[in-house]
Amino acid sequence: MLRTLALLAATAVATTVAATPALAEGDFSAGSEAKEWGLFGEEKARFTATVTDAVCALTGDCPEDCGAGARQMVLIRDADGAMIIAAKNTQPAFTGATVDLAPYCGQSVEVDGVMVGDPEITGQPTRIYMVQTVRAEGGEPAKTNRWTKEWRAAHPDAPKGPWFRNDPRVTALIGKEGYLGLGLETDAAFIEEWF
């Protein structure tokens, strides 16, 4: 309940502050120390925001822990009230931002990262955010690199090597349907031809 009220307040204040349309990312590039990845429509973006999960922001269903990493996370930007989906953390390892942002659930933070997405390529205005650092009020910026550490802690007996080669959920599906998802027979024929 308290988290719902806090989010409502943040959203309401932001909405009041920002009667104008959402600002362009260029307006948030000042002071950014984000690393460049060379992605579609990439723009650095550093801003303050309230951390919450997408379902909470959309429907008001707000667990105190934002789902503890199981829900998709969003940032309600202070400057204009825009709802930014945090799709990626900073690790080059097929990892999202849920685990990194959930500990800041309901908090006001400063994030640094890059917005990506090019409407001319995808045919739609959607832009999504790679959050590279998070700084709580009064704290130091923390890199968003928790995902693989938490995966390793949850899978202490997994072989060495990239998590995605050893994740039991993934390996079970590939073992059943193949790398192409079309069945083991199709997979075998393709691999023989391709390699």
Partner: peptide
């Protein structure tokens, strides 16, 4: 890759 990203928590 889609399996990896979904398991990794990417939307």
């Amino acid at each position: 890759c889609a399996l990896w990203c979904a398991a990794g928590g990417i939307p």
